[in-house]
Design a binder for these strands. Sequence first.
DNA 1: CGACTTCATGTCATGAAGACGATTAGCTAG
DNA 2: CTAGCTAATCGTCTTCATGACATGAAGTCG
Lengths: 242, 242
Amino acid sequence: MTTPHFSGVAVTVDVVVLTIRDDELQVLLVERGIEPFRGMLALPGGFILPDEDAEPAARRELVEETALDGEGLYLEQLRTFATPHRDPRGRVITVAYLAIAPDLPVPAGGTDAHAARWQPVSSLLSGAVALAFDHLEIVEHAVDRARSKLEYTTLATAFCPAVFTMTELRRVYEVVWGVSIDARNFHRKVTNADDFLEPTGERRVLETGRPAALYRRGAARSLFPPMLRAAFPPVPAADPRS
Amino acid sequence: MTTPHFSGVAVTVDVVVLTIRDDELQVLLVERGIEPFRGMLALPGGFILPDEDAEPAARRELVEETALDGEGLYLEQLRTFATPHRDPRGRVITVAYLAIAPDLPVPAGGTDAHAARWQPVSSLLSGAVALAFDHLEIVEHAVDRARSKLEYTTLATAFCPAVFTMTELRRVYEVVWGVSIDARNFHRKVTNADDFLEPTGERRVLETGRPAALYRRGAARSLFPPMLRAAFPPVPAADPRS
DNA sequence: CGACTTCATGTCATGAAGACGATTAGCTAG
DNA sequence: CTAGCTAATCGTCTTCATGACATGAAGTCG
């Protein structure tokens, strides 16, 4: 540790954008236009600029590659991946970010250079769809992080639009955790937590059923008492006539 | 994002080693022997080698700079800091690590090049002692992480030696959180949690009082139900004769 | 105006957790 | 040997969050 090694190392950012579409946890991917891994799916991301901090770089790449709104988006740093040969081009380390988006009608594959599109996380974890580089590992970390954070933070609201119903919020937990939650107990718990939700007073009238009260995100960032994941029925298994 | 920017960027690792000494949360620091910030206290760390992963680099720097055992040490990645001018020498981003050590009689300032020594975290957070670079910010993140992880993981045992007493474990929570915890309820809760602790059958006889049973770390990594921090008396305030 | 659908609220039993009293197991001093 | 000290461990009571489950409320549609 004497003088800086400004030798050939490059730094990138990669962003795992999670959302819920069609009652499924999905991740935003782009099709690679260049080698290596040309034509394969990968996380949006790219090289950090010489005078740029990591988080702005993540937001910038997101906008450039997927035309996704960089502003209202929840974004947090996930972890840095620095395994020596993770990029065949040379020494490239990446700072991975986790972003959470509501189910916006993203111009997937529309506006920009690369064809951006949503992909169910399950199709990646099962190995049905392959990702470039070590991006599968990054997605796994991101999903783990999101699952944990639902427990003790109010992160779930980041999956919802600015105004949402209790049922929408509950579905976030159900989809991300893969469990089913009793609507009544959930309602009680969430309304008891301070500043988790803020009633708008409005109601949303659907085609059918009683109108649902509308809520906005509250000021609270942490959730106390936490949602206890382990207490819910552990993923309804495919009924094997026991 | 066309071809890699292998321009002048360097990558370092920095390690925040936390321990409990004298009933205080302390962090391991080294005195810088070179510019910039020569003579100032800083986190142990250094440049990552061309063909080295980040975590091994963290372990290596720890051994080189502080002669601390790299093996039995708990180590996890914390976060990457990439603010453009955080290092006056140029573009240097650092991958920060959090390590937890039992109160080993470390050869502080002994064996090696730099004078390594323990410093109470409180003296850093209060601003009484200054750190080089943005290392104060890194320490703050590390302490936050450690405090959170005590809640829902068994990380507390990493502060203890291989064999320890219930009281030692409880002190970890008390010192790191800055609260006082009822010994009886703590005992009940911890022994009820599966695989948190494993009784050795031995007892430790002190100068006074009933001998304490000795425990070893159990296999569990996560702690359920979690320790609920917010439920404890919120830091005994200086009795305002109210 | 009933049938249907979805949201909202209530009750009850269980279990975890905080407060705190009581007992146990070692030592030491008389 | 016994009283007394200290710290660890065990037990009880009460409160409160939570899971299970039933019922009422507010809309649309025929």
